[in-house]
Structures are given as C-alpha cells and as structure tokens.
Amino acid sequence: MQFTSALAIYFLFWVLTGLAMLPFGFEPVPRDDPDYVPGQAESAPRHFRPRRVILRTTIVATALFALFFLNYEMGWIGIEDVDISRLVTPPE
C-alpha cells in the first residue's frame, strides 16, 4: 500500500470516528440552569471540549486503522471469505 493511500484511508477512519465520538461524554444544559441561554437547543453541550474529542478520536482511529492495515498486510479476512451470494439470492 502506498503512503498516500494509507494516509487517505487513515483520514477517512479519523473523520468517521470523530463523528461517532461527538455524542460521548457531553452533558446538556437543563432549562433551569443559570448557564442556559434562552433560545439555545436543549441538546447543546454544557462544556464542549474539542481537545478531548480530538484526542479520543485520534486514539480510536489509530487503533482501527492499525487493525485495518494489519488485515491488509496479513490477509486475515479477504473478499473470498465473504459469501455475498447468500445476501443476494433469497433462501429456498
């Protein structure tokens, strides 16, 4: 695998992992809280910590990409291991 291909695939892992990490570890502001701003969405986080989200995203994306790359190099699971015919044709 070329370096640029690996970098592009890592970037895809990072972005998708980042989107998956956003809802974890956030606390919404209740309406009776003094920090509540009238008109703000109820799902808005009390304290958004982008550094923490970026750190979590980087750790998880790196682990997932390492598994992907090891599978690519070692050939643990290939296209021949996936039986698509069962998904396409209905059972008799």
Score class of each variant (00 low, 15 high):
residue 26 F to K: 01
residue 19 L to D: 01
residue 21 M to F: 02
residue 91 P to S: 10
residue 71 N to A: 00
residue 87 L to A: 13
residue 9 I to A: 02
residue 41 A to E: 08
residue 37 V to M: 09
residue 91 P to G: 04
residue 90 P to N: 12
residue 48 F to V: 06
residue 32 D to G: 02
residue 15 V to Q: 02
residue 47 H to P: 00
residue 57 T to Q: 09
residue 57 T to D: 08
residue 41 A to I: 00
residue 31 R to L: 11
residue 84 I to M: 14
residue 66 A to M: 13
residue 40 Q to N: 06
residue 72 Y to R: 10
residue 15 V to S: 03
residue 60 V to D: 11
residue 81 D to I: 04
residue 87 L to S: 13
residue 11 F to W: 06
residue 58 T to C: 11
residue 92 E to W: 02
residue 91 P to H: 06
residue 70 L to W: 09
residue 89 T to K: 12
residue 15 V to M: 05
residue 27 E to M: 01
residue 61 A to N: 05
residue 9 I to W: 00
residue 79 I to F: 11
residue 83 D to H: 13
residue 92 E to Q: 10
residue 27 E to T: 03
residue 74 M to Y: 10
residue 63 A to L: 14
residue 60 V to C: 13
residue 7 L to S: 08
residue 54 I to H: 04
residue 59 I to Q: 12
residue 77 I to G: 09
residue 62 T to S: 14
residue 56 R to H: 13
residue 30 P to Y: 01
residue 51 R to N: 09
residue 2 Q to R: 09
residue 75 G to K: 05
residue 5 S to R: 10
residue 18 G to Q: 03
residue 32 D to C: 04
residue 80 E to W: 14
residue 76 W to E: 08
residue 87 L to F: 12
residue 77 I to Y: 06
residue 54 I to T: 13
residue 14 W to I: 02
residue 64 L to Y: 08
residue 47 H to C: 01
residue 58 T to E: 12
residue 29 V to P: 03
residue 66 A to R: 07
residue 14 W to Q: 06
residue 27 E to S: 02
residue 40 Q to K: 08
residue 3 F to Q: 08
residue 73 E to Q: 10
residue 8 A to D: 00
residue 3 F to C: 03
residue 44 A to T: 12
residue 57 T to V: 06
